[in-house]
Design a protein around this nucleic acid. Structure first.
Length: 715
DNA sequence: ACCGATTGAATTTTT
DNA sequence: TTCAATCGGT
C-alpha cells in the first residue's frame, strides 16, 4: 500500500504488507512494533478484509484502547470499532459468558482475582487440617495458578506431582483438587480458569470452535514472548484453520516467566507454523545511541536468546550517569534535585521523568521527597484502588448479589460492618452449609427460617431482594442501595480515626466509578461492571497527558517510554532481586528486566543505588549491582573481590546486613582466621560487642563470624 | 463478640 | 519498617 510507505521503513513495510499466512515479527525494543501492528490492521481493512474478522490480543486493556485509537486515526473509526481488540482474559471471559451453556458454567459466574483465590486456598488448607506455616497459602496458590497456566487439571497435576520429590507439590495437588471443587460449586472462575475453560470449550465443542475460527480469520498477538502455555494453545486452536496469524515479540523482553510465560512460544513459532515468514525489526527509533549500546552490552550477558543487533537511529546523546548515594534518602533527594534542575534549567516537563524501581516498597521514600520538594507525581500500581479494604468490602456485597453462591465474598462481609455474627455464629453457618452441601448464603437462609440468626435478618433480606431484581436494575442503583442498607457508611462514620474520612471517600469514589462505567460502556448490568473491574488493572488508568513524574515498577514500565528515566536501587540483592537459591535462568530474567528498563529511556538515563539501605527496618550494606559492571558503567564489584559467580554461590542466611561504626573490620579488608586461614571481608554488621563479619575464605567457603569470638587478624 | 496489643513475615504480578 | 493475623482481656 503506497499510503504507508512514507511512514514505515523497509522491514516494517514488509510486515505490514504481508497479510496472509503465519508471520513472526521479532521486534527489538523501540523498533516500532505497535506501529506495525496498527498499520497492518489498517492495511487489512484497506484490503477489504472485514474488520469483524480481525482479532488482536494485547496484554493490557490500556494497550488495547491505545491500539483501537491509533487504528481509528488511519481508517474509518466505525470500521476500527469492529475489530476485536482485547486481552486474552477479557477475550476468554466474553466467550465464556456467551457460551456458558456449552462451557458448563453458570451465566453469573464471578471472576476471582488472586487475593480471592488465596482466601479460598486458605479455607481449603484449614479444612484439610494442613499447617499453614508449612504450606503457605500464597505458595500453594501460585503452584495451582501455574498448573492452570499449563492447562493441568487437578488429576493431571497430581500425576505430575506424584513423581516430584518435593512434598509441597504433592500437597498442592491435593489442595488444588479441593480448591477446584469449591470454586466450581460456588460459581467462581479464577484467572487461570478463564483461559483453561475457553480452551476446554473449544476442544469439547467442535461446532463452537468452528464458529470462532470462521469469525477470527486474522489474528494478531502482541507481546508474544509473554504468553503462557494456555494462551499458546488457545491461539493455536483459533488459528489452525486459516493460519493467518501474526505474532509480535522480543525474547529479550520476556519478564513474566515466573508467572508462567513460556519463551519457547516465540522461539519455536517457526516450528509450529512451517510456512512462517519472519521479519526482524532492528532499527531503534526510541533511544539515543548511548542508551541503546548500554542496553545491548547488558543483554549480551544472557545466553538463552536469539542473537540480534539493534541499530540506533538517534545520535549518541548524553552519557549515562550512575551515582552511588550514601543511603536511600540521599538517593531520593538526589533524584528529586535532578528533576527540579531539569524542569528549571533544561526545559523539561515533570511528565518527561519516570522513576523505576524493582519493588513497590521502594516508592514511598520517593513520594515523601517529592511531596517535600513540591514535585507532582503519580504512583502507578502500588496500592490499587480496588485493593483497598473498604472498596473490596462493597465489591463483596455486589458479588454476592450477583452470585449468592460466592462463599468467599460471603465470608468477607457476613460481619462487615459488625452485626454480631462472630466466630461461633459463623461456625454454625459453615457447619450447616457443609452438612446440607449448599452455599453459605443458602445455609443462612435455612437457619433464618429456624430463627437462629436474627442478627443477619436484614443482611439476608437486602442481598436476596437485590439478587432477585439485579437484572432489572442498573448497577449504580444497586450499589447505592446496598451501601445504604448495609449501614456501611454509618459504620465508617462511627470510627473517628483519621482514615475513616478517606475510606468514606473511597466508597463514594466506587459509586462514581459505577456511574462512570455505565455512561462509558452502555451496559448497565451489575455483571458487566463486576467483570470489567476484575479484568482491568491499575496501569490501564495511567494517563501520560498529565504533567506528573511517574513512579513505577520495572515490570509495569514495559510498553512505556519516557525522555528521562531513573533506574533506582541498583544494588546486588535488590536489583537483581535475588536470594541465594536463585537459578541462573532467574538471574537472566532480572537482566532482561533491566534491559526493559533501560530501553524505556529516550534521551537521558540515570542509574542510582545506595551504599546503605534500610530493608525491613534493618540497616544493610549494599554493593553495586553486577549489571553496572556488565553495562561497563562501574567496576566496583572487584573492589571487594567478588564476581558474579561468587554472589550466585553465596549461601543462604548470609544476607548483607547491619551497619558498623568504628571497627577495624571493614569491607574489602583481608583477614586471617586461626582455623580457616586467609579470607576477605565481604560485609560487616552490628555495633560494639555485636560486630559480625561475613568472610569469604580463600578456601572458597563463606562464614558469618562474631568479631568478639573469632580471633581475626587484619592483614 | 469486640477491641487493642503483640508477633511475625516480608519480591516482582499484564489478567 | 509496615502490614496482617492471631491472642487475650474486657
Amino acid at each position: 500500500m503506497n499510503t504507508f510507505e512514507g511512514c514505515l521503513n523497509h522491514e516494517q513495510l514488509e510486515a505490514v504488507n504481508c497479510l496472509n499466512g503465519p508471520l513472526l515479527i521479532l521486534a527489538g525494543a523501540g523498533s516500532g512494533k505497535t506501529r506495525v501492528i496498527v498499520y497492518r490492521i489498517a492495511n487489512l481493512i484497506a484490503n477489504k478484509i472485514n474488520p469483524w474478522n480481525i482479532l488482536a490480543m494485547t496484554f493490557t486493556n490500556k494497550a488495547a484502547c491505545q491500539m483501537r485509537e491509533r487504528i481509528s486515526n488511519l481508517v474509518d473509526p466505525r470500521l476500527a470499532g469492529d475489530v476485536w481488540i482485547s486481552t486474552y482474559h477479557s477475550f476468554g471471559a466474553r466467550i465464556l459468558r456467551a457460551e456458558h451453556v456449552a462451557a458448563g458454567l453458570k451465566r453469573d459466574f464471578n471472576i476471582f482475582d488472586d487475593s480471592d483465590s488465596k482466601k479460598l486456598v486458605e479455607i481449603c488448607l484449614k479444612e484439610m487440617n494442613l499447617d499453614s506455616d508449612r504450606y503457605k497459602p500464597s505458595v500453594m496458590c501460585d503452584m495451582i495458578s501455574i498448573a492452570k497456566d499449563k492447562l493441568l487439571d487437578p488429576e493431571s497435576y497430581s500425576l505430575h506431582a506424584a513423581a516430584s520429590p518435593e512434598s509441597s507439590r504433592r500437597v498442592a495437588a491435593e489442595v488444588y483438587e479441593l480448591y477446584q471443587e469449591k470454586l466450581k460449586s460456588m460459581g467462581g472462575v479464577d484467572f487461570g480458569d478463564i483461559l483453561r475453560y475457553t480452551v476446554d470449550l473449544f476442544k469439547n465443542n467442535p461446532d463452537v470452535l468452528e464458529k470462532y475460527r470462521e469469525r477470527f480469520r486474522y489474528i494478531l498477538i502482541d507481546e508474544y514472548q509473554d504468553t503462557n502455555y494456555a494462551q499458546y494453545v488457545l491461539t493455536k486452536l483459533l488459528a489452525a484453520k486459516y493460519k493467518n496469524i501474526c505474532v509480535v515479540g522480543d525474547d529479550d523482553q520476556s519478564i513474566y516467566s515466573w508467572r508462567g510465560a513460556d519463551i519457547r512460544n516465540i522461539l519455536e513459532f517457526e516450528r509450529d507454523y512451517p510456512e512462517t515468514r519472519v521479519v526482524y525489526l532492528e532499527q531503534n527509533y526510541r533511544s539515543t545511541k548511548n542508551i541503546l549500546d548500554t542496553a545491548q552490552k547488558l543483554i549480551h550477558y544472557n545466553h538463552h536468546r536469539k542473537p540480534k543487533d539493534l541499530k540506533a537511529v538517534k545520535p549518541a546523546g548524553d552519557k549515562i550517569e550512575y551515582v552511588e548515594f550514601q543511603n536511600e534518602f540521599a538517593e531520593a533527594s538526589g533524584v528529586a534535585d535532578r528533576i527540579i534542575s531539569g524542569v528549571r534549567h533544561y526545559n523539561r516537563k515533570y511528565s518527561d521523568f519516570a522513576i523505576f524501581y524493582r519493588t513497590n516498597a521502594q516508592s514511598r521514600i520517593f513520594e515523601e521527597n517529592f511531596v517535600r520538594a513540591g514535585i507532582p507525581y503519580v504512583v502507578v500500581g502500588g496500592c490499587k484502588f480496588y485493593d483497598r479494604a473498604e472498596v473490596r468490602d462493597i465489591l463483596a456485597y455486589l458479588r454476592l448479589i450477583n452470585n449468592p453462591s460466592d462463599d468467599v465474598s460471603f465470608r468477607r462481609i457476613i460481619n462487615m460492618p459488625p452485626r454480631g455474627i462472630g466466630k461461633s455464629t459463623a461456625a454454625i453457618i459453615i457447619n450447616k452449609a457443609h452438612e446440607m452441601r449448599i452455599p453459605l448464603f443458602e445455609a443462612l437462609k435455612v437457619l433464618s427460617t429456624e430463627g437462629t440468626v436474627k442478627k443477619a435478618e436484614n443482611f439476608l433480606k437486602s442481598i436476596s431482594g437485590l439478587h432477585a431484581e439485579k437484572d432489572n436494575m442498573d448497577a449504580s442503583e444497586i450499589v447505592k442501595i446496598i451501601i445504604e442498607e448495609s449501614g456501611y457508611m454509618e459504620y465508617l462514620e462511627g470510627h473517628k480515626d483519621i482514615e475513616s474520612q478517606s475510606r468514606m471517600d473511597n466508597v463514594k469514589e466506587l459509586v462514581s466509578a459505577v456511574v462512570d462505567f455505565e455512561q462509558h460502556i452502555g451496559n448497565k448490568t451489575l455483571a458487566a461492571f463486576l467483570e470489567n473491574i476484575s479484568l482491568v488493572s491499575d496501569i490501564d488508568s495511567f494517563d501520560e497527558k498529565k504533567d506528573y513524574v511517574t513512579l513505577i515498577t520495572l515490570h509495569l514500565a514495559k510498553g512505556l517510554e519516557f525522555p528521562c528515566v531513573f533506574i533506582t536501587g541498583m544494588e546486588e540483592g535488590l536489583f537483581p532481586l535475588t536470594d541465594s537459591s536463585m537459578s541462573l535462568e532467574e538471574r537472566e530474567e532480572e537482566r532482561r528486566l533491566c534491559y526493559v528498563g533501560i530501553t524505556r529511556a529516550k534521551e537521558e538515563l540515570f542509574l542510582s543505588g545506595a551504599s546503605c539501605r534500610r530493608i525491613y527496618g534493618q540497616m544493610r550494606y549494599c554493593i553495586p549491582s553486577v549489571f553496572l559492571k556488565e553495562m561497563e558503567i562501574c567496576k566496583l564489584l572487584s573492589d571487594v573481590g567478588m564476581t558474579d559467580r561468587d554472589i550466585v554461590s553465596m549461601p543462604r542466611g548470609l544476607e548483607f546486613s547491619g551497619i558498623n561504626s568504628s571497627s577495624p573490620y571493614t569491607r574489602g579488608k583481608m583477614i586471617k582466621h586461626p582455623d580457616f586461614g586467609l579470607g576477605k571481608i565481604i560485609d560487616v554488621s552490628g555495633t560494639g560487642d555485636d560486630v559480625k563479619v561475613i568472610v569469604k575464605f580463600d578456601s572458597g567457603f563463606w562464614k558469618k563470624l562474631m568479631v568478639k569470638y573469632a580471633k581475626l587478624e587484619v592483614i
